[in-house]
C-alpha cells in the first residue's frame, strides 16, 4: 500500500472514531432528556405547577418549590452579577498585568474548581452562623452567588477580550478616558457575551443542591414571604422526595426533575440564541 493511501486510511479511521465518540455524547444527552420527558412530562399539569403540595407531598403541585428556586436564582443574580461583572471589567480593562493579578486570576480559577458542598459548608459558617442570617433565602442566595462569581468574572473577562484593541484605541485617540471607552464602546459590544455567559452560570446555580442544603432549604416550607424565611427548592425537593420520603411518589419526583431541567434548558436556549443573533449583527 502506498504511503498516501495509508495516510488516507488513517484519516478515515480517526474521523470514524471521533464521530463515534460524538455520537455517544449525543446519545447520552438524548437518552437522559428523552427518558426524563417520558417519565416526567405526564405529571406536569397546570395543577402541578400552580398548587402547593398536599398529603405529605404525594399529591398536589410544586408551586412553592418552583418559586423558591426562582427567588434563590434572582437573589444569586442580585449579588453575583454586579460584583462579578465589575471585577471582570477591572481585571480585563484596568488591572496591570503583574504577579498580583496573575495570582488573583489563579484564585478565581481555583474558586471555580471548589466542590459545591464546600461552598455549602462555607456559606453555613459565614452567612448562616457568623452573620446570623439563619437558614434563609438570603443566606442561600449569597452562598450560590459565591459559587457563581468565578463563572461571571471569567465570562465577563472573556467577552471583553473578544473586543478588538483597535476599538479601544480609536476611543482613547478621540480623547475619551478609559472608563468612558469601557462604558460607551467596549461594554455595549461585549454585552451579549456577558449576559449569556452569566445566565448559563446562574442556571447552573439553579440546579445546585449542596450549597443550599445547610443554608436555605427546608423539607417543607410555605411560600417565603421575606428574604429571611426558609424556602423549598427544586433540586433539594428532588433529593428529598427520592431518598427520604415516607410514602414514595414517583410521579412527583419525575415531574420535579422534568420541571427543573426543562426550565433551565429553556432559559439556556433563549440566552444562547439571543447571543448568536447579536453576534451576527456585529461582525469584526
Amino acid at each position: 500500500m502506498s504511503r498516501v493511501k495509508r495516510a488516507r486510511m488513517m484519516e478515515s479511521l480517526a474521523k470514524g472514531i471521533m464521530g463515534i465518540a460524538t455520537l455517544i455524547v449525543v446519545g447520552i444527552a438524548l437518552f437522559l432528556l428523552g427518558y426524563l420527558a417520558y417519565r416526567g412530562a405526564p405529571s406536569v399539569t397546570w395543577e402541578f405547577l400552580s398548587q402547593a403540595p398536599r398529603k405529605a407531598m404525594t399529591e398536589g403541585g410544586i408551586h412553592p418549590v418552583i418559586m423558591g428556586t426562582v427567588y434563590l436564582v434572582l437573589g444569586t443574580a442580585a449579588f453575583a452579577l454586579p460584583i462579578g461583572i465589575m471585577a471582570g471589567i477591572y481585571l480585563s480593562e484596568f488591572a496591570p498585568r503583574n504577579l498580583w493579578t496573575r495570582l488573583i486570576r489563579l484564585a478565581i480559577t481555583n474558586m471555580a474548581g471548589v466542590p459545591s458542598i464546600v461552598y455549602g459548608l462555607f456559606g453555613f459558617a459565614l452567612f448562616v452562623m457568623s452573620m446570623r442570617l439563619g437558614v434563609s433565602l438570603i443566606a442561600g442566595a449569597l452562598t450560590l452567588a459565591c459559587l457563581t462569581l468565578p463563572v461571571v468574572i471569567t465570562v465577563t473577562e472573556e467577552a471583553l477580550r473578544r473586543i478588538p484593541r483597535e476599538l479601544r484605541q480609536a476611543s482613547m485617540a478621540l480623547g475619551a478616558t478609559r472608563i468612558r471607552t469601557v462604558r460607551k464602546v467596549v461594554l455595549p459590544a461585549a454585552a451579549p457575551g456577558i449576559v449569556t455567559g452569566s445566565i448559563l452560570g446562574l442556571s447552573r446555580a439553579a440546579g445546585e443542591t449542596a450549597p443550599v442544603l445547610f443554608t436555605a432549604v427546608a423539607f417543607f416550607a410555605p411560600m417565603p414571604s421575606s428574604p429571611l424565611d426558609q424556602t423549598m427548592a427544586l433540586p433539594y425537593h428532588l433529593y428529598i422526595m427520592a431518598t427520604q420520603a415516607v410514602r414514595p411518589a414517583p410521579h412527583v419526583v419525575w415531574g420535579t426533575a422534568f420541571v427543573l431541567v426543562a426550565g433551565v434548558s429553556i432559559i439556556n436556549i433563549i440566552a444562547a440564541t439571543w447571543r448568536s443573533a447579536q453576534r451576527k449583527k456585529i461582525k469584526w
Partner: peptide, 16 residues
C-alpha cells in the same frame, strides 16, 4: 492633547 491631535489607524476601526 488628543482633542487637538487626532489619529486615524491602519485598519478602519469604526465603533459598532
Amino acid at each position: 492633547l488628543r482633542i487637538r491631535v487626532g489619529q486615524v489607524f491602519q485598519k478602519p476601526n469604526p465603533f459598532p
